[in-house]
Design a protein around this nucleic acid. Structure first.
Lengths: 208, 208
DNA sequence: CGAATTTCATACCAGGCAGTATATAAGAGT
DNA sequence: ACTCTTATATACTGCCTGGTATGAAATTCG
C-alpha cells in the first residue's frame, strides 16, 4: 500500500521498498520559494522540480499534484514566516502591535526571500485558481483579521485608542497598509522607502 | 500596404480593401475588462477574442500581439479610469487630495468593472512579464507618485501638514493604503468595509 | 466588370503545460 | 538469494498556449 502522502514525513522504521532519496521538508521549502517568487500559475512544474532537485514522479508521489503542493507550501509559509504575527499580537499596546507587524513585514523584505507576502500575492494574482485554494487563502486571511480585531478590541477596553475609534476599522486599516507595503516591495521599492512607510504609519497612529 | 496598426483608428476615406467589421475602441475596451479581471497571463487569447467578438487574425492584424494589446489596454485604463487621479490633484488641500483619491478608488469598486486597480494587479501578479510591460507599469507608477509628491510638497508649503511631516513619505503612505484597498477589494471585501477604510484613513489623516 | 487590396474565417503549427505509464533501481522481510 | 514494495528515471500523453498560413469575402479604383 502507498502510505498517506499527506504526512510528508518519511515513513517510520517498518518501511518496505526503496527509501526516498530527498528530504520532503527541504523540497517543500524550495517549492515555497518558487511559488513565492512566481505565483501559483507562474510556477511551472519543471521549474518546481528543478528547484526542488527531484523528478516529476517523485513530486507527484510525495505531494499529490500542483494544487496540493501549493497548499502545503502555503501552510509552511503561514507557519514559519508569519510567526511575527502571533508574536506581535502579544505586544502591550495597540500601537505596539502595529509596530511589531510593520517591522516584521519590513524585515521580511530585507532578507533573501522573495519580496512581498505570499498570501497577498496569491490573493491578488489571479482568478483562475482552483476554488479550494482561494477558499484556503481567504480563510487564513479571515483568521488573521479576526485575531487582530480581537486584540484591538481588548486594546480599546484598555484605553489604547482615542474615543470613537473602531477597533475593527483600525485592524483593516493596518492590514491595508501591510498589503500596500507588499505591493510596493513587489514593484521595486527600496528598503529605505519601506522603512519610511513604517515610521510614517507609526507617527500618524492614533493612541498608544 | 498595411496601415500602421498602432493607430487603431479606422482608415480614412482613401481606403482600399475590405473594411473592418468591428470597432477597435469597443474591442479594446472589452480586452481591458478581461485583462483587468484575469491578469495578463491569466487572460488567454481565446478568452480575449471571445470577449472582443473578433477572431484571432483580426486581433493580431489590428493590435499586434498579446503584449501590444495589453499595453494599449493599459494605456486606455490609465486614460479613462484614472481620471480621478488627475482631478484629485486639484483639490485645495492635501487632505482633500487624499479624500478624492480614496473616494475615487472606492467608487471604482462599486461599479460593474472588475475589482482592484489594474496597475496594482499587474505589478504584483507575476514576474514572467516581458520586460517592456514591467517597465511601462513601473514608469506609470513613478509618474503618478511624482505627481502626488509634488502636490504634497506644495501642500507642505501652504501649511497643510503639521510640522515635520515629509510630503514624499505621505505620498507613499497614501498610495500604500490605496494599494491595500485594491488587495482587500480583490479578496472579497464588501463596499461597506472599503468605505470604512476610507473614513478611518481620513479620520487619522494629519493636517488639513 | 475586373484588378488590387484588405479583412475575415477556418484550420493549423510548434511549444509548453500538468500529469502519467512503464521499466528499472534500491531497499526490507523471509 | 528471492520476493515484495516503494522510489526513481525516461519517455510519453492530451491539452492548451500564443501565433500563423491559406483561402474566401468585401470593398475601392480603374
Amino acid at each position: 500500500m502507498k502510505f498517506d502522502p499527506d504526512t510528508i514525513v518519511a515513513p517510520h522504521s517498518t518501511h518496505r521498498g526503496r527509501p526516498r532519496q530527498f528530504c520532503p521538508d527541504a523540497a517543500l521549502t524550495a517549492a515555497l520559494k518558487v511559488f513565492w517568487a512566481r505565483g501559483y500559475e507562474g510556477a511551472s512544474m519543471t521549474e518546481l522540480t528543478e528547484a526542488m532537485g527531484i523528478t516529476k514522479p517523485s513530486l507527484y508521489a510525495c505531494f499529490g499534484n500542483k494544487e496540493a503542493l501549493f497548499r502545503k507550501a502555503l501552510d509552511l509559509y503561514e507557519k514559519e514566516k508569519l510567526a511575527y504575527v502571533r508574536a506581535g499580537l502579544t505586544a502591550p499596546t495597540a500601537k505596539g502591535v502595529a509596530e511589531a507587524f510593520l517591522r516584521g513585514a519590513l524585515a521580511m523584505q530585507t532578507g533573501n526571500d522573495p519580496r512581498g507576502c505570499l498570501s497577498v500575492v496569491s490573493a491578488v494574482a489571479c482568478t483562475n485558481y482552483a476554488d479550494s485554494i482561494r477558499d484556503e487563502i481567504t480563510s487564513l486571511r479571515l483568521a488573521t483579521d479576526h485575531a487582530i480585531i480581537e486584540r484591538f478590541e481588548r486594546a480599546r477596553d484598555e484605553g489604547d485608542f482615542p474615543e470613537g475609534v473602531d477597533p475593527a476599522a483600525m485592524a483593516h486599516y493596518l492590514t491595508a497598509i501591510l498589503q500596500g507595503m507588499t505591493v510596493q516591495a513587489r514593484s521595486g521599492a527600496t528598503p529605505a522607502e519601506l522603512e519610511r512607510l513604517v515610521t510614517t504609519t507609526l507617527a500618524i497612529w492614533p493612541g498608544r
